[in-house]
Simulated scan of single mutants.
Amino acid sequence: MRVLVTGGAGFIGSRVAEELRLAGHEAVTLDAYLPQAHPGQGPREGVDVVADVRDGDAVERALRGVDAVCHQAAMVGLGSAGFLDAPDYVGCNDLGTAVLLAAMARAGVRDVVMAGSMVVYGEGRYTCPEHGDVRPGPRAEADLAAGVFDPPCPRCGAALVPGLVGEEAPTDPRNVYATTKLAQEHLCASWARAVGGRAVSLRYHNVYGPGMPRDTPYAGVASFFRSALARGEAPRVFEDGRQRRDFVHVADVARANVAALEAVRDRAGGELSAFNTGSGTPHTIAEMARALAEAYGGPAPRTTGEYRLGDVRHITASSRRLVEELSWRPRVGFAEGMAEFARADLRGSVGAGATTG
């Protein structure tokens, strides 16, 4: 199978391309080398097409002879300019996806696997002792400033128990990035219905591993903690550190993409299927920071009470559907992955493009 991987020079896209080749497929990579995602770096050897996914002509050229597309190109993160960077997110993520899908329709390519995100759910699943499953609204800034981080039951105000969210849960994006990721799914679903195509969205959880970008809007919390340790500083843990996430290794995410690409032709045409893609084992941010600091041999994390509006408290999801339908299982355990990540190099510049490890 010949697969076009957009964002193929990125943290996840490059691993997907590598995994495809190991599985005996041909990967064609396209990447724009946006400075936000590749700080201090220019185009490298091994990338087949250096172009923006919004460049329809370039995308059409890249699609020649392609059997399927793995769409990883996106602008990620919560953003650093409030709502002012909304046009950039919408342009990169939604317009880019629309251009890609239109080119696929013209080229007759009918299979796509896209990088989705757990952020489309907003908050995760919560259970009230009296009212069962409930969906709390966005957290109020006054509560966050007062150190009240857990959302209460919206009906009675009781403390809630967090759980695992399934793909059938309603979507509730809480920031610009999340909104664009959900719009990408809607675009893929519309394309699938219009052309009889098959689309899969892998809703990633907190992906980490070697090659993460360093200290950019594209860097996850694990990368920021790892960079702090490299500077000899204690990782700063926001809120009280008890917010729950699912940390999944990039190698497992790459394998999930290959499994989805190999299975997509067996799925029904004209629709999009979504799969949560996580380790299935929640950990708190504080647990992750401690594991990373201990593996690195650096200072212990410092819980600061700081917060960011737009962050959710708990978001962990069940990956049961991915396991059952695509026979995928995560192979890299939490302790093993954090120990590896503590020793790994990160992408990005410290001075003139050097990395530290």
Rank of each mutant, 00 (worst) to 15 (best):
residue 3 V to W: 00
residue 3 V to F: 00
residue 9 A to S: 02
residue 22 L to N: 04
residue 26 E to Y: 03
residue 30 L to N: 10
residue 31 D to S: 13
residue 32 A to E: 06
residue 34 L to C: 00
residue 38 H to G: 00
residue 38 H to S: 00
residue 39 P to L: 00
residue 43 P to D: 10
residue 46 G to D: 09
residue 51 A to N: 11
residue 53 V to E: 08
residue 53 V to Q: 10
residue 55 D to R: 11
residue 56 G to S: 05
residue 57 D to E: 15
residue 60 E to S: 13
residue 63 L to Q: 12
residue 63 L to C: 09
residue 64 R to S: 15
residue 66 V to L: 15
residue 67 D to H: 14
residue 67 D to I: 12
residue 71 H to E: 06
residue 79 G to Y: 15
residue 91 G to N: 14
residue 94 D to L: 13
residue 101 L to T: 04
residue 105 A to I: 07
residue 106 R to P: 03
residue 106 R to H: 15
residue 107 A to H: 11
residue 108 G to E: 11
residue 112 V to N: 06
residue 117 S to C: 09
residue 121 Y to G: 09
residue 125 R to Y: 15
residue 140 A to I: 01
residue 142 A to R: 15
residue 148 V to M: 07
residue 153 C to V: 03
residue 159 A to C: 08
residue 162 P to N: 07
residue 167 E to D: 09
residue 171 T to C: 03
residue 172 D to E: 13
residue 173 P to F: 07
residue 179 T to N: 04
residue 180 T to Y: 09
residue 181 K to C: 05
residue 182 L to V: 05
residue 184 Q to H: 02
residue 184 Q to S: 04
residue 184 Q to N: 09
residue 188 C to M: 12
residue 190 S to Q: 13
residue 192 A to L: 11
residue 197 G to P: 06
residue 198 R to M: 11
residue 198 R to D: 12
residue 200 V to H: 13
residue 200 V to Q: 02
residue 205 H to R: 07
residue 206 N to W: 02
residue 208 Y to I: 05
residue 212 M to P: 00
residue 213 P to Y: 06
residue 215 D to R: 10
residue 217 P to S: 01
residue 219 A to E: 06
residue 220 G to L: 05
residue 221 V to F: 14
residue 222 A to G: 13
residue 222 A to C: 11
residue 222 A to K: 03
residue 227 S to V: 08
residue 227 S to W: 06
residue 241 G to P: 14
residue 244 R to L: 15
residue 247 F to S: 05
residue 247 F to N: 01
residue 247 F to G: 05
residue 256 A to E: 05
residue 259 A to Q: 02
residue 263 A to I: 03
residue 263 A to V: 05
residue 266 D to I: 03
residue 266 D to C: 02
residue 267 R to L: 15
residue 269 G to F: 10
residue 269 G to L: 11
residue 271 E to Q: 15
residue 272 L to C: 04
residue 273 S to Q: 12
residue 273 S to G: 07
residue 276 N to G: 11
residue 277 T to R: 08
residue 279 S to T: 11
residue 282 P to I: 02
residue 283 H to G: 04
residue 289 A to Q: 01
residue 290 R to W: 10
residue 291 A to S: 14
residue 292 L to K: 07
residue 294 E to N: 10
residue 298 G to Q: 04
residue 298 G to H: 05
residue 300 A to H: 01
residue 302 R to A: 13
residue 303 T to M: 09
residue 307 Y to A: 08
residue 309 L to A: 10
residue 310 G to D: 09
residue 312 V to S: 04
residue 315 I to N: 13
residue 316 T to D: 00
residue 317 A to P: 07
residue 318 S to P: 12
residue 322 L to H: 06
residue 326 L to D: 08
residue 326 L to F: 08
residue 331 R to E: 15
residue 333 G to Q: 03
residue 335 A to E: 14
residue 340 E to M: 08
residue 341 F to V: 04
residue 342 A to I: 04
residue 346 L to P: 06
residue 349 S to A: 14
residue 350 V to M: 03
residue 351 G to F: 06
residue 352 A to E: 11
residue 353 G to Y: 01
residue 354 A to M: 07
